[in-house]
Design a protein around this nucleic acid. Structure first.
Length: 282
DNA sequence: GTCCAGGAAAAAC
DNA sequence: GTTTTTCATGGA
């Protein structure tokens, strides 16, 4: 039998987090229910206000999903850091009240944000899913929390290993809609596979923000913005402040005299997520 | 047809 | 060293 775990959580919206451009493997199943895929993990969550039902049971919630959704962090405290005179940020926080910065897998974020460059969210989502479907492992999702309408025949695909992607080579990545980015993924998969690759990923995960950025910037296809996204979403360096085309426009229009980074030392990345979400959906 | 999308590498100045 | 062009691709 399925064991369902219910819990009350403040400052959290699955929907807002799913549409905040940091994760491309959450699917809306309707009726407030979401399917979430992370690495090899899968769960369905039903949200009604501040009450949540997780399909995974309490052990998996405490062992994995609680940390994944960053539920141990007090986002009320972060919202309270907003400058009272910064109307734009205050509106952004009010609008995206339930956005959280996920603690996702580094390797998964490296691949995902290599795909993201000069790309749009729909195409990124399609490419990530195609990558998983082609190279990931096929698994049975869940025994009927709700009908798995978005998941073909009740199955899902895990995010593929570096070895699986590396083995395909750049030729094997041609039919995923990656465009010119295929060569970046092929090179990075090669970099991360085998014993040496695992060590590199482990070093990356142990590094502080500056060091991690330096390691990432040495790799083919990784520039400052992608490195910052990997740091923020894959390594939980919430001081990282990725500046993409949307954030650049916000800074130009609403912060012409410069963004007050010094007011948000150590949490600028979370502030950035509120701004990004508001720009996209507000 | 042109412009844009969670940009970065390569070429040109 | 800094600025400009190129790189696929699908949708508006």
């Amino acid at each position: 039998m399925r064991e369902e775990f219910e819990i009350q959580i403040k400052d959290f919206s699955v929907e807002q987090t799913a549409y905040s451009g940091q994760c491309f493997r959450m699917r809306n199943l309707g009726d407030g229910v979401w399917a979430i895929l992370a690495g090899g993990h899968y769960v369905q969550v039903k949200q009604q206000g501040d009450r949540f039902a997780f399909s995974c049971g309490e052990d998996a919630f405490r062992g994995f999903w609680r940390e994944y959704f960053d539920l141990g962090t007090d986002y009320g405290r972060i919202k309270a850091m907003a400058d009272p005179e910064d109307d734009y940020l205050r509106k952004a926080m009010e609008f995206g009240w339930g956005v959280r910065v996920l603690r996702q897998n580094p390797w998964e974020m490296i691949m995902t944000f290599l795909i993201s460059q000069n790309n749009n969210i729909t195409r990124i989502t399609n490419s990530v899913e195609a990558l998983c479907k082609k190279f990931g492992e096929r698994r049975i999702a869940c025994d009927g929390f709700v009908p798995d309408c978005m998941l073909e025949d009740g199955c899902y695909y895990t995010f593929p290993s570096p070895e699986a992607v590396a083995a395909a080579g750049v030729e094997g990545l041609k039919d995923l809609g990656l465009g010119y980015r295929d060569k970046y993924l092929a090179a990075m998969a090669k970099r991360c596979c085998g014993e040496e690759g695992r060590e590199w990923l482990e070093d990356l995960a142990q590094s502080d923000y500056e060091t991690a950025c330096g390691l990432l910037l040495k790799e083919f296809g990784v520039g400052k913005k992608v490195a910052d996204c990997i740091c923020l979403f894959g390594l939980y360096h919430v001081e990282a402040f990725p500046i993409d085309t949307h954030i650049r426009q916000i800074l130009e229009v609403h912060y012409p005299k410069g963004f007050p980074y010094e007011s948000y030392t150590g949490v600028a990345g979370i502030i950035q997520q509120y701004l990004f979400y508001y720009k996209l959906h507000g």
